[in-house]
């Protein structure tokens, strides 16, 4: 095995006992069509996709379904609780998701208010405890607070997913210090969920030592979502490699790269 193969081969990650190669998780909302969505997922290289749980359309049951375009046998579906503002609603949604899909790995998010979509941590913690007791394996969307992250981990969250910035804002990682503190303190995978706007934001998250990045709008609302999906794949891989490689120290002033000796 040559050195490059070794770099690639030794870097899978796992959550709740399932192993993955791609560190990019993508959402399936806001796309113009199912076809575009499927092509973007393909280009992203993601192995996990988030999905929402909603009422079936009883008045038109023959409408195409997400599962017809993004095969749940090929991709791990991660059902979310988007739109839930109480622990009770989130738990109810995930019980239905488990019945619809048949798996325990889920994404929990309990929102505090519509304007910021900031998580309600009191309800989030409550829901995590109930879900874990019922056998779920919740990956939990949360504030970028190292103490809250610890509490979620103690409650049984299988992954901690702090926001980089508000959902759908595309503002990038607002607080590198808290994300790094969460990564350093966590015994479970940490993924930045929400706030990524462009490729460099994803790379920043990975350079901070995150195990992965979850994004939806940054790809879906790009002018060319398929090209952006490919950009995000490259960014997550680059950021991860840079983190593993160990970046150089920062200096306040210049340091020449060419030898000073032998100057004419």
């Amino acid at each position: 095995m040559n050195a490059m193969n070794e770099i690639e081969a030794s870097d899978s990650w796992s959550v709740a006992g399932q192993s993955f190669t791609s560190r990019l998780i993508v959402g399936t909302g806001k796309y113009k069509s199912f076809e575009q969505n499927a092509a973007a997922v393909e280009a992203s290289g993601a192995e996990i996709v988030t999905v929402a749980v909603r009422r079936v359309n009883v008045s038109d049951p023959n409408q195409p379904l997400l599962t017809d375009f993004i095969d749940p046998k090929r991709y791990t579906y991660l059902p979310n609780t988007a739109g839930c503002f109480t622990a009770e609603d989130a738990i109810r949604t995930l019980r239905l998701a488990r019945e619809a899909g048949g798996w325990e790995l889920v994404k929990l998010e309990v929102l505090g208010e519509a304007k910021t979509l900031y998580p309600d941590m009191r309800e989030t913690l409550k829901a995590t405890e109930v879900l874990v007791a019922e056998g779920f394996k919740p990956m939990v969307y949360c504030v970028d607070d190292p103490i809250a992250a610890k509490q979620l981990e103690e409650a049984g969250a299988v992954a901690i997913m702090p926001l980089g910035a508000p959902i759908g804002s595309g503002l990038g990682i607002q607080n590198r210090v808290t994300i790094r503190l969460i990564v350093e303190g966590a015994g479970v995978p940490v993924l930045v969920d929400a706030g990524v706007g462009t490729a460099s934001d994803a790379a920043v998250a990975m350079e901070l030592g995150c195990d992965g990045v979850l994004m939806n709008t940054a790809i879906a609302e790009a002018k060319d979502p398929i090209m952006m999906a490919r950009a995000m794949k490259a960014a997550v891989e680059s950021g991860r490699l840079a983190y593993r490689a160990g970046r150089m120290g920062q200096r306040r002033y210049a340091d020449p790269s060419s030898p000073l000796a032998g100057l004419i």
Partner: peptide
């Protein structure tokens, strides 16, 4: 009854 399925979401 509530009858649900998976739809696109983030």
């Amino acid at each position: 009854f509530e009858i649900v399925t998976f739809v696109g979401g983030g």
